[in-house]
Every structure is written in C-alpha cells, then in structure tokens.
Design a protein around this nucleic acid. Structure first.
Lengths: 222, 222
DNA sequence: GTGCGATTGTGAACAGAGGCACAAGCTTCT
DNA sequence: AGAAGCTTGTGCCTCTGTTCACAATCGCAC
C-alpha cells in the first residue's frame, strides 16, 4: 500500500518538515545513508512511527540498509510541495513582524519574503533588511506581481481577521497567523495559528507545583 | 466525575489558554455570561469538546445559563497555574530574541521577562526595552535572584542543547525552544518547541496543487 | 408550584494516532 | 550459493481524542 499517498495523515504531515530538517543536517555532515532508528533519534520520535510516516509517501528505504539521505530529502520536499520557491508576504511590522522579516530561516528553506505591508505612517516606507515596507492599500498589485501565495500575519489582534480576508481576496492561499486571536478562513485556504504567549501558558500547567490541592504533577510535554 | 482533575488530557491543556484568551476578550467587552456554543465559536472548536475540556476542571457552568465569564477565567488560570507571575528569561538575542524580549504579550499574561542573555560581545550590554543584555556566564546568579523558572531559547541551532542544559542546571524547569533543532530535557522539565519555518512547510502541503500526480488536495488545517 | 425552554455534563460510539513485533527483503560474508 | 545479520514496511492491538446525543438541571414565566 501507500503507493502514492491518496492522503497523508495530518499528524504525519506535521512531522515531515522535522525529518527534513534532520536530513539536511545529516547531509551537511556528509552522511549518505541513515537508518530509521538513527533519524528517529535525531527527530525525537519513535522509530516505528517515523517509518510509518515515511511509508505514506512510498517505499524509499532499502531493507537491511536504511534511507539514502539525499533521495529521502527530495521525496519529502516533493511531497510537501517544496520543489519550488514559494514567495511570502508579511503583514504587520511591529516587533515580531520585523524580526520575522529579518529572520533568515524562511528564505533558506524556500520561502523568500518578497514584500512587507503595514498601515502605520511611521512604519510604511521603513527599510527592513532588503525590503521597504509598502502600504497595505497596495497589497493586491504586489501580491499579483510576485505571485505570492503565503502570508504571515503579525498585526494586532483586532486587525487580524480583516487583514486575513484582504490577503485571501488578493490571492493568498496559505496563512500563518501570529496575531493572538482566532481567524477564520474559507474553503481552499490553509491556515496555521501560532500564539507565543499561549505556549508559555501551556508550559505553566506542567510546572511542578505543590501549592494547590494537587499533589505532584511532573510530566513531559510533547 | 471530574471532581478535581487527577489528570487533564494533554490535548485539553493545550486548548485551555485559548479559551482563556477568548474569555478575556469577552470580559473586556463587558460580557458576564457565555454559553459553550458561543465560546466554542470564538475559539474555533466544537462545543461538545469545549464542554468536555472544561468538565476536566470541575463543574463551573450553570445548566440553562452558561458559564460566568469571570469565574471561569479564574478557574482556568488556577488550573494552569497562572495565579502568580512567572518570571522568564530569554537566551539568545538575535532578531527573534530581541523581538520576543520587546513583545508585550508575555508580560501582559503573567510572564514578565526579567533577564536577557547572550554571549556575543556586540550584544552583551545592549539595552533592549527596559533590560540590558547580560553575559550567559552570569546565568546562575541572575536566575536564582529572580527565581525564574521559565526560559525562552532563541539561540542558533548549534548552541541550543548546551544552553538548554545550562539553564536547567541553573534551576529552570520550563523551556520554550525557538531554535530550529530538537533539544532533549530530563525528567521534571517541561518543554515545547516552536519552529517558524517548519510551520510554513506544513502549510505548503495543504496548498492546492495540480503539478504532481496528485489531483486536488484542498483541506483545512487545524 | 408547575411547566417550559435552554444549556450543561457525560455515557457511548467512533475516529485517529501510536507502538509492538514480525515477516519480507536487502547486503555481506563464507 | 547459502546462511547470517540488519533494517524496512506493515498488520494488529491499544490508547487517546473527538463527536454525538440525551438525561439532568437550571432559570423564568405564569
């Protein structure tokens, strides 16, 4: 089975980029072949789970040997649709937005940031890295010009939904939302939400505590 | 059942802060009471799931009426251990680290940033917001002084594991890792990992594509 | 006080993800 | 060529998480 994924489970999809990152590191170290157990160790997951994840995109391992690093890298990239560069825009250039715009990790991984947008007069026109912040009113033309399909939203919470609607109207089909609010998108648009403060609050629960009526609660998060 | 959670499922714990954020918004708008269906709508989840999540921390709703916003807010905060402030340190003040240090969202939610660390000579001594970047060598004393228990790691990938080990040795029990690498922590230390580029790669999979042998793949992410 | 409409809390069915364990298959050594 | 030793791919079982559907319970009106 698992000919050519009719469907890769969401949980597997979320781990594929992780494997990819590990493979790239192995490649940089000149490793040509890797076993599932070794790769699983690097990724911090169970070896059987890793093999099952990889099996969803076909049989690219060799029994008795392992996986060819370069080959597997390419197969994961293909499955994820990372064969070609995917231009990204950033909307909202406060502290976080500026950091994201300057962050090299996106361009390195096939997501070059091609345009920045804001509405604040003191931010529009500002140079950040190689780019100059454009006004959000000019969104549609610029998105079309660069054929950008992905938007990073790092606006204040109260603007996020309107901005999301606008970028989708301009042709964006993937949205990564950093604004601390839930945004809604229609069919055919992919969405992921990241809230930094939320992560700390989740961690808080797993802090060893003895204050409350609870005894001890030490557990590892995932 | 669900007297006082012997154990709240991890999936529920991860959603509680989300509900909290929605409740705070309702509170700011002067709403006193909310039904599970309304709150679920705001949080973008199923109403039954929300009720089950809340049931893990006791029965704080009123049948026929709903939940008292203020009361529920407090109960979730208590369950998550957010009753008191939890000081946070940031290690690694590159672009992302600086943005996180200046980001107001942490302090507002009970996680005041009390110290910043780096090792680069041109960064140590720099003023960021109200704080001056300390040298990582001074970690132990400063962590002890502020009784900090949470660390945000935003160093380069190759330094992340060593830094993690060091902050844990200094008394940190919760780690939020932004470095693009998997770090290991021992028993009794809570860990969450956030990789921004990884999020874009996951989104990439759900982009409508027709290039490959795959037909159409439009699905909503969660 | 009784009845009615609304909403919670939860049992039970269902779906998805995780992990063990082993057969299948490759490579190497003799 | 045959045997031995790995490692993959996967069937099967378990466990966690999700969703439905409904009884229990509340406030309110009359």
């Amino acid at each position: 089975m698992a000919e050519d994924g009719l469907q890769v489970p969401a949980a597997s999809v979320a781990r594929l980029p992780l494997y990819l990152r590990c493979l790239e590191e192995l490649c940089a170290n000149g490793v040509a072949t890797v076993s599932s157990s070794r790769l699983a160790e690097l990724a911090g997951v169970n070896a059987a789970k890793l093999r099952k994840d990889l099996s969803h995109l076909g049989s690219y391992g060799t029994r008795g040997v392992g996986y060819e690093v370069i080959n597997l890298t390419h197969e994961i990239q293909r499955e994820l649709g990372l064969d070609e560069q995917s231009p990204v825009i950033v909307v909202g250039l406060g502290n976080l937005g500026q950091a994201l715009a300057k962050h090299g990790g996106f361009g390195d991984r096939g997501f070059p940031i091609v345009a920045l947008f804001d509405v604040q007069p003191d931010i529009v026109g500002m140079q950040i890295g190689d780019l100059v912040v454009a006004h959000f009113d000019d969104l549609a033309g610029i998105v079309a010009h660069y054929k950008a399909r992905t938007a990073i939203i790092s606006t204040p919470a109260d603007a996020a939904q309107q901005v999301t609607d606008d970028v989708i109207a301009a042709g964006i089909t993937s949205v990564l939302n950093f604004a601390p609010t839930v945004v809604q998108v229609g069919e055919g648009v992919a969405l992921r939400q990241v809230d930094l403060a939320l992560e700390l609050q989740i961690l808080s629960y797993y802090q060893p505590r003895s204050d409350s009526e609870r005894d001890t609660k030490l557990r590892l998060s995932v």
